[in-house]
């Protein structure tokens, strides 16, 4: 009885991990109103982490870093060949030129902070 119970709990946990981190990942992002949005960098997460913006229009992203750990120091848009230093406690605005439709990932140097910019 116990054996069964532990196995069921284990498998349920496994299913939950797969569900939560892959299947249930939100695909809808926060809309960047009028081409501007502020992103908070704290506690290992960009919030919001998924941003939607209209394709073909430039967008300005403001990052406010609150995490002093050096991991959070840089934001890298690998596909766009952009990387910027984020000063602690100050807003840093990054202007992105207009992009075609698609998903553009932005991360910290170590990929622990992860975000997606969706041009739609």
């Amino acid at each position: 009885m116990n054996t069964l119970l532990v196995n069921v709990i284990g498998l349920a946990l496994l299913a939950f991990v797969i569900y939560w981190f892959w299947l249930a990942k939100p695909s809808k992002g926060t809309k960047a109103e009028s081409g501007k949005i502020t992103i908070k960098v704290a506690n290992g997460v960009y919030s919001p982490a998924v941003i939607e913006a209209p394709a073909g229009k430039p967008i300005s992203l403001s990052f406010l870093r609150e995490d002093p750990s050096p991991c959070a120091q840089k934001v890298v848009f690998a596909d766009l060949d952009i990387s910027e230093d984020l000063p602690l406690g100050k807003t840093k605005t990054i202007q992105l030129p207009a992009q075609p439709t698609g998903d553009y990932r932005f991360t910290c140097q170590m990929q622990m902070y992860q975000g997606t910019l969706k041009f739609i």
Binding site: N43, V45, S47, A49, M112
Partner: peptide, 13 residues
């Protein structure tokens, strides 16, 4: 950090 990431459906170190 872990909790914030978890709420965001993401996982990190």
């Amino acid at each position: 950090g872990a909790w914030k990431a978890f709420k965001n459906h993401s996982a990190n170190m």
